[in-house]
Protein backbone atom coordinates (compact mmCIF):
# COMPACT_ATOMS: atom_id res chain seq x y z
CA UNK A 1 0.00 0.00 0.00
CA UNK A 2 2.78 2.41 0.90
CA UNK A 3 4.69 1.63 -2.26
CA UNK A 4 1.51 2.16 -4.24
CA UNK A 5 0.96 5.56 -2.67
CA UNK A 6 4.51 6.64 -3.35
CA UNK A 7 4.33 5.50 -6.93
CA UNK A 8 1.08 7.38 -7.48
CA UNK A 9 2.56 10.54 -6.04
CA UNK A 10 5.66 10.23 -8.20
CA UNK A 11 3.45 9.83 -11.25
CA UNK A 12 1.70 13.08 -10.51
CA UNK A 13 4.87 15.16 -10.44
CA UNK A 14 5.24 15.54 -14.22
CA UNK A 15 1.52 16.32 -14.42
CA UNK A 16 1.89 19.07 -11.85
CA UNK A 17 4.86 20.56 -13.66
CA UNK A 18 3.04 20.53 -16.97
CA UNK A 19 -0.06 22.07 -15.41
CA UNK A 20 1.92 24.86 -13.76
CA UNK A 21 3.78 25.62 -16.96
CA UNK A 22 0.66 25.72 -19.10
CA UNK A 23 -1.30 27.91 -16.69
CA UNK A 24 1.69 30.21 -16.33
CA UNK A 25 1.94 30.66 -20.09
CA UNK A 26 -1.82 31.11 -20.51
CA UNK A 27 -1.90 33.75 -17.81
CA UNK A 28 0.52 35.89 -19.77
CA UNK A 29 -1.97 35.99 -22.61
CA UNK A 30 -5.01 36.35 -20.45
CA UNK A 31 -4.40 39.75 -18.99
CA UNK A 32 -2.17 42.53 -17.93
CA UNK A 33 -1.72 43.37 -14.24
CA UNK A 34 -1.22 47.01 -15.17
CA UNK A 35 -4.26 47.27 -17.46
CA UNK A 36 -6.12 49.71 -15.24
CA UNK A 37 -3.21 52.13 -15.24
CA UNK A 38 -3.29 52.31 -19.00
CA UNK A 39 -6.65 53.97 -18.67
CA UNK A 40 -5.45 56.63 -16.25
CA UNK A 41 -4.72 59.84 -18.19
CA UNK A 42 -2.14 60.89 -15.61
CA UNK A 43 -0.10 57.75 -16.04
CA UNK A 44 2.63 58.12 -18.63
CA UNK A 45 4.40 55.33 -20.53
CA UNK A 46 7.44 56.14 -18.42
CA UNK A 47 5.38 55.36 -15.33
CA UNK A 48 4.28 52.04 -16.82
CA UNK A 49 7.81 51.14 -17.81
CA UNK A 50 9.10 51.98 -14.35
CA UNK A 51 6.40 49.84 -12.70
CA UNK A 52 6.93 46.92 -15.07
CA UNK A 53 10.57 46.91 -14.14
CA UNK A 54 9.82 47.03 -10.43
CA UNK A 55 7.36 44.16 -10.73
CA UNK A 56 9.68 42.10 -12.91
CA UNK A 57 7.26 42.17 -15.83
CA UNK A 58 10.00 43.25 -18.22
CA UNK A 59 11.76 39.90 -17.95
CA UNK A 60 11.12 37.16 -20.53
CA UNK A 61 8.51 34.52 -19.83
CA UNK A 62 10.90 31.61 -19.22
CA UNK A 63 12.93 33.63 -16.75
CA UNK A 64 9.81 34.52 -14.81
CA UNK A 65 8.65 30.90 -14.78
CA UNK A 66 12.06 29.70 -13.64
CA UNK A 67 12.03 32.28 -10.87
CA UNK A 68 8.49 31.43 -9.79
CA UNK A 69 8.96 27.65 -9.82
CA UNK A 70 12.30 27.91 -8.02
CA UNK A 71 10.74 30.02 -5.30
CA UNK A 72 7.68 27.80 -5.14
CA UNK A 73 9.66 24.63 -4.56
CA UNK A 74 11.45 26.39 -1.73
CA UNK A 75 8.13 27.34 -0.16
CA UNK A 76 7.96 30.96 -1.31
CA UNK A 77 4.72 31.38 -3.23
CA UNK A 78 5.42 34.96 -4.20
CA UNK A 79 3.44 38.11 -3.60
CA UNK A 80 0.04 38.81 -5.10
CA UNK A 81 0.43 41.64 -7.56
CA UNK A 82 -2.95 43.16 -6.89
CA UNK A 83 -3.19 42.70 -3.13
CA UNK A 84 0.51 43.27 -2.41
CA UNK A 85 0.44 40.42 0.09
CA UNK A 86 2.06 36.99 0.24
CA UNK A 87 0.00 34.58 -1.87
CA UNK A 88 0.11 31.83 0.73
CA UNK A 89 -1.26 34.15 3.40
CA UNK A 90 -4.15 35.16 1.14
CA UNK A 91 -4.96 31.56 0.26
CA UNK A 92 -4.98 30.41 3.88
CA UNK A 93 -7.21 33.34 4.86
CA UNK A 94 -9.75 32.61 2.14
CA UNK A 95 -9.51 28.85 2.48
CA UNK A 96 -10.85 29.12 6.02
CA UNK A 97 -14.01 30.79 4.75
CA UNK A 98 -14.37 28.36 1.89
CA UNK A 99 -13.99 25.45 4.30
CA UNK A 100 -16.91 26.71 6.37
CA UNK A 101 -19.18 26.93 3.38
CA UNK A 102 -17.96 23.61 2.01
CA UNK A 103 -18.46 21.73 5.25
CA UNK A 104 -21.95 23.10 5.57
CA UNK A 105 -22.79 22.19 1.99
CA UNK A 106 -21.21 18.77 2.30
CA UNK A 107 -23.11 18.00 5.45
CA UNK A 108 -26.37 19.28 4.04
CA UNK A 109 -25.98 17.32 0.82
CA UNK A 110 -24.97 14.17 2.62
CA UNK A 111 -27.84 14.29 5.07
CA UNK A 112 -30.31 14.84 2.26
CA UNK A 113 -28.90 12.80 -0.58
CA UNK A 114 -28.02 9.54 1.15
CA UNK A 115 -31.42 8.85 2.77
CA UNK A 116 -33.17 9.89 -0.44
CA UNK A 117 -31.00 7.49 -2.39
CA UNK A 118 -31.59 4.63 0.02
CA UNK A 119 -35.31 5.08 0.18
CA UNK A 120 -35.57 5.47 -3.58
CA UNK A 121 -33.74 2.20 -4.04
CA UNK A 122 -35.72 0.27 -1.46
CA UNK A 123 -38.98 1.57 -2.88
CA UNK A 124 -37.92 1.59 -6.49
CA UNK A 125 -40.49 3.06 -8.91
CA UNK A 126 -42.62 4.27 -6.03
CA UNK A 127 -44.13 7.72 -5.84
CA UNK A 128 -41.34 8.74 -3.57
CA UNK A 129 -38.75 7.44 -5.98
CA UNK A 130 -40.28 9.41 -8.83
CA UNK A 131 -40.69 12.57 -6.80
CA UNK A 132 -37.15 12.35 -5.45
CA UNK A 133 -35.79 11.77 -8.93
CA UNK A 134 -37.78 14.63 -10.31
CA UNK A 135 -36.82 17.16 -7.69
CA UNK A 136 -33.19 16.25 -7.51
CA UNK A 137 -32.95 16.59 -11.27
CA UNK A 138 -34.91 19.82 -11.18
CA UNK A 139 -32.33 21.21 -8.78
CA UNK A 140 -29.55 20.07 -10.99
CA UNK A 141 -31.14 21.71 -14.02
CA UNK A 142 -31.24 25.25 -12.63
CA UNK A 143 -28.49 27.62 -13.67
CA UNK A 144 -26.86 28.18 -10.31
CA UNK A 145 -26.71 31.97 -10.43
CA UNK A 146 -30.39 32.19 -11.22
CA UNK A 147 -31.31 29.84 -8.42
CA UNK A 148 -29.16 31.78 -5.97
CA UNK A 149 -30.79 35.08 -6.88
CA UNK A 150 -34.27 33.59 -6.61
CA UNK A 151 -33.47 32.21 -3.17
CA UNK A 152 -32.29 35.64 -2.12
CA UNK A 153 -35.49 37.16 -3.33
CA UNK A 154 -37.85 34.62 -1.80
CA UNK A 155 -36.16 33.40 1.38
CA UNK A 156 -34.20 36.60 1.89
CA UNK A 157 -36.51 39.40 0.99
CA UNK A 158 -40.14 38.24 0.82
CA UNK A 159 -39.84 35.94 3.81
CA UNK A 160 -38.33 38.73 5.88
CA UNK A 161 -41.19 40.98 4.94
CA UNK A 162 -43.75 38.31 5.75
CA UNK A 163 -42.20 37.39 9.10
CA UNK A 164 -41.30 40.88 10.19
CA UNK A 165 -37.77 39.76 11.10
CA UNK A 166 -34.86 38.41 9.18
CA UNK A 167 -34.55 34.64 9.28
CA UNK A 168 -32.08 34.26 6.40
CA UNK A 169 -29.59 36.91 5.39
CA UNK A 170 -29.14 37.58 1.70
CA UNK A 171 -25.36 37.81 1.58
CA UNK A 172 -21.93 37.99 3.26
CA UNK A 173 -20.66 35.98 6.23
CA UNK A 174 -21.94 37.93 9.22
CA UNK A 175 -23.71 41.10 10.23
CA UNK A 176 -21.54 44.02 11.27
CA UNK A 177 -20.69 43.65 14.95
CA UNK A 178 -21.77 40.00 15.08
CA UNK A 179 -18.63 38.46 13.65
CA UNK A 180 -18.45 35.75 16.31
CA UNK A 181 -22.16 35.04 16.76
CA UNK A 182 -22.89 31.41 15.83
CA UNK A 183 -26.61 31.87 15.15
CA UNK A 184 -25.93 34.88 12.98
CA UNK A 185 -23.34 32.90 11.05
CA UNK A 186 -25.78 30.06 10.43
CA UNK A 187 -28.39 32.52 9.19
CA UNK A 188 -25.84 33.78 6.69
CA UNK A 189 -24.73 30.28 5.74
CA UNK A 190 -28.17 28.95 4.90
CA UNK A 191 -28.76 30.35 1.42
CA UNK A 192 -25.29 29.78 -0.07
CA UNK A 193 -25.31 26.27 1.41
CA UNK A 194 -28.59 25.39 -0.27
CA UNK A 195 -27.44 26.89 -3.56
CA UNK A 196 -24.16 25.05 -3.52
CA UNK A 197 -25.70 21.72 -2.49
CA UNK A 198 -28.24 21.83 -5.26
CA UNK A 199 -26.08 20.36 -7.98
CA UNK A 200 -24.67 17.63 -5.77
CA UNK A 201 -27.86 16.37 -4.17
CA UNK A 202 -29.04 15.04 -7.52
CA UNK A 203 -25.78 13.31 -8.34
CA UNK A 204 -25.15 11.74 -4.96
CA UNK A 205 -28.67 10.54 -4.35
CA UNK A 206 -28.82 8.96 -7.80
CA UNK A 207 -25.52 7.29 -7.17
CA UNK A 208 -26.61 6.04 -3.80
CA UNK A 209 -29.78 4.71 -5.35
CA UNK A 210 -28.10 2.67 -8.06
CA UNK A 211 -25.37 1.45 -5.76
CA UNK A 212 -28.03 0.38 -3.28
CA UNK A 213 -30.01 -1.36 -6.00
CA UNK A 214 -27.00 -3.43 -6.95
CA UNK A 215 -26.33 -4.46 -3.38
CA UNK A 216 -29.94 -5.36 -2.68
CA UNK A 217 -29.82 -7.89 -5.48
CA UNK A 218 -26.66 -9.51 -4.16
CA UNK A 219 -26.76 -13.03 -2.87
CA UNK A 220 -25.62 -12.40 0.63
CA UNK A 221 -28.60 -10.18 1.20
CA UNK A 222 -30.91 -12.94 0.11
CA UNK A 223 -29.13 -15.09 2.62
CA UNK A 224 -29.64 -12.51 5.29
CA UNK A 225 -33.29 -12.34 4.40
CA UNK A 226 -33.50 -16.09 4.47
CA UNK A 227 -31.99 -16.10 7.93
CA UNK A 228 -35.07 -14.21 8.94
CA UNK A 229 -33.57 -10.82 9.69
CA UNK A 230 -36.01 -7.93 9.54
CA UNK A 231 -35.98 -5.81 6.43
CA UNK A 232 -34.82 -2.60 8.06
CA UNK A 233 -32.04 -4.47 9.76
CA UNK A 234 -30.93 -6.04 6.50
CA UNK A 235 -30.97 -2.73 4.75
CA UNK A 236 -29.23 -0.69 7.36
CA UNK A 237 -26.73 -3.25 8.60
CA UNK A 238 -25.75 -5.12 5.50
CA UNK A 239 -26.82 -3.32 2.41
CA UNK A 240 -26.00 0.22 3.42
CA UNK A 241 -22.44 -0.52 4.44
CA UNK A 242 -21.62 -2.03 1.12
CA UNK A 243 -23.62 0.43 -0.89
CA UNK A 244 -21.86 3.39 0.70
CA UNK A 245 -18.45 2.37 -0.57
CA UNK A 246 -18.84 3.56 -4.16
CA UNK A 247 -20.76 6.61 -2.99
CA UNK A 248 -17.95 7.67 -0.69
CA UNK A 249 -15.60 7.30 -3.61
CA UNK A 250 -17.71 9.60 -5.73
CA UNK A 251 -17.89 12.11 -2.91
CA UNK A 252 -14.12 12.08 -2.63
CA UNK A 253 -13.79 12.74 -6.33
CA UNK A 254 -16.23 15.65 -6.06
CA UNK A 255 -14.35 17.25 -3.19
CA UNK A 256 -11.75 19.22 -5.16
CA UNK A 257 -14.44 20.65 -7.40
CA UNK A 258 -16.36 21.68 -4.32
CA UNK A 259 -13.33 23.58 -3.08
CA UNK A 260 -12.50 25.38 -6.27
CA UNK A 261 -15.73 25.50 -8.19
CA UNK A 262 -17.89 27.62 -5.95
CA UNK A 263 -17.07 30.92 -7.57
CA UNK A 264 -20.60 31.72 -8.67
CA UNK A 265 -22.12 30.94 -5.28
CA UNK A 266 -19.42 32.92 -3.53
CA UNK A 267 -19.90 35.80 -5.90
CA UNK A 268 -23.65 36.02 -5.53
CA UNK A 269 -23.64 35.63 -1.77
CA UNK A 270 -20.57 37.85 -1.27
CA UNK A 271 -18.82 34.99 0.49
CA UNK A 272 -15.11 35.80 0.74
CA UNK A 273 -13.86 32.40 -0.38
CA UNK A 274 -11.12 31.00 -2.53
CA UNK A 275 -13.22 30.83 -5.72
CA UNK A 276 -13.73 34.57 -5.78
CA UNK A 277 -10.06 35.11 -5.09
CA UNK A 278 -9.19 32.97 -8.10
CA UNK A 279 -11.76 34.77 -10.25
CA UNK A 280 -10.32 38.13 -9.24
CA UNK A 281 -6.79 36.93 -9.83
CA UNK A 282 -7.55 35.78 -13.36
CA UNK A 283 -9.43 38.98 -14.18
CA UNK A 284 -6.50 41.10 -13.07
CA UNK A 285 -3.70 39.05 -14.57
CA UNK A 286 -2.35 38.45 -11.07
CA UNK A 287 -0.46 35.34 -12.08
CA UNK A 288 1.35 34.70 -8.80
CA UNK A 289 -2.01 34.47 -7.07
CA UNK A 290 -3.54 32.32 -9.79
CA UNK A 291 -0.55 29.97 -9.80
CA UNK A 292 -0.79 29.56 -6.05
CA UNK A 293 -4.47 28.65 -6.16
CA UNK A 294 -4.01 26.35 -9.15
CA UNK A 295 -1.29 24.48 -7.30
CA UNK A 296 -3.42 24.11 -4.18
CA UNK A 297 -6.32 22.86 -6.19
CA UNK A 298 -4.08 20.47 -8.13
CA UNK A 299 -2.76 19.04 -4.89
CA UNK A 300 -6.33 18.61 -3.70
CA UNK A 301 -7.32 16.72 -6.85
CA UNK A 302 -4.34 14.40 -6.53
CA UNK A 303 -4.86 13.91 -2.82
CA UNK A 304 -8.56 13.12 -3.02
CA UNK A 305 -8.12 10.83 -6.01
CA UNK A 306 -5.55 8.89 -4.12
CA UNK A 307 -7.66 8.88 -1.00
CA UNK A 308 -10.63 7.58 -2.97
CA UNK A 309 -8.56 4.73 -4.38
CA UNK A 310 -7.05 3.81 -1.05
CA UNK A 311 -10.38 4.03 0.69
CA UNK A 312 -11.92 1.85 -1.95
CA UNK A 313 -9.29 -0.78 -1.43
CA UNK A 314 -9.57 -0.51 2.30
CA UNK A 315 -13.31 -0.98 2.30
CA UNK A 316 -13.34 -3.62 -0.38
CA UNK A 317 -10.64 -6.19 0.40
CA UNK A 318 -11.10 -7.87 -2.99
CA UNK A 319 -8.98 -5.10 -4.56
CA UNK A 320 -5.27 -5.47 -4.13
CA UNK A 321 -2.76 -2.78 -4.97
CA UNK A 322 0.21 -3.89 -6.94
Amino acid sequence: MFAYTVRRLLHSIPVLILASLVVFILMQYAGDPLARLRLNPHVTPQDIERLEKEMGLDKPLWARYARWSGDFVRGDWGESMSHHRPVLELIVERMKNTLQLMSAALLFTFILAIPIGIYSAVRQYSKFDYAATFFSFLGFSMPIFWFGLILQMILGYYLTRALGFQLFYTASMYSVGKEYDLINRLQHLALPTITLSLAYIAGWSRYQRSSMLEVIRADYLRTAHAKGLSESKVILKHALRNALIPVITVIMLDMPALFGGAVITEYIFAWPGIGRLLHYGILNGDYFLVMGIVMVSAFLVIFFNLLADILYGFLDPRIAYK
Partner: peptide, 22 residues
Protein backbone atom coordinates in the same frame (compact mmCIF):
# COMPACT_ATOMS: atom_id res chain seq x y z
CA UNK B 1 -3.73 9.24 -19.02
CA UNK B 2 -1.26 11.78 -17.67
CA UNK B 3 -2.67 14.18 -20.25
CA UNK B 4 -6.14 13.44 -18.91
CA UNK B 5 -4.96 13.97 -15.35
CA UNK B 6 -3.44 17.24 -16.44
CA UNK B 7 -6.72 18.43 -17.90
CA UNK B 8 -8.56 17.39 -14.74
CA UNK B 9 -6.09 19.07 -12.44
CA UNK B 10 -6.52 22.60 -13.80
CA UNK B 11 -9.54 24.27 -12.18
CA UNK B 12 -12.43 24.63 -14.60
CA UNK B 13 -12.62 28.33 -13.86
CA UNK B 14 -9.08 28.87 -15.10
CA UNK B 15 -9.80 27.08 -18.36
CA UNK B 16 -13.08 28.91 -18.88
CA UNK B 17 -11.84 32.37 -18.07
CA UNK B 18 -8.38 32.24 -19.56
CA UNK B 19 -9.52 30.59 -22.76
CA UNK B 20 -12.54 32.91 -22.79
CA UNK B 21 -10.41 36.01 -22.58
CA UNK B 22 -7.97 34.85 -25.23
Amino acid sequence: MRLTDFALIIPALVILMVAGSI
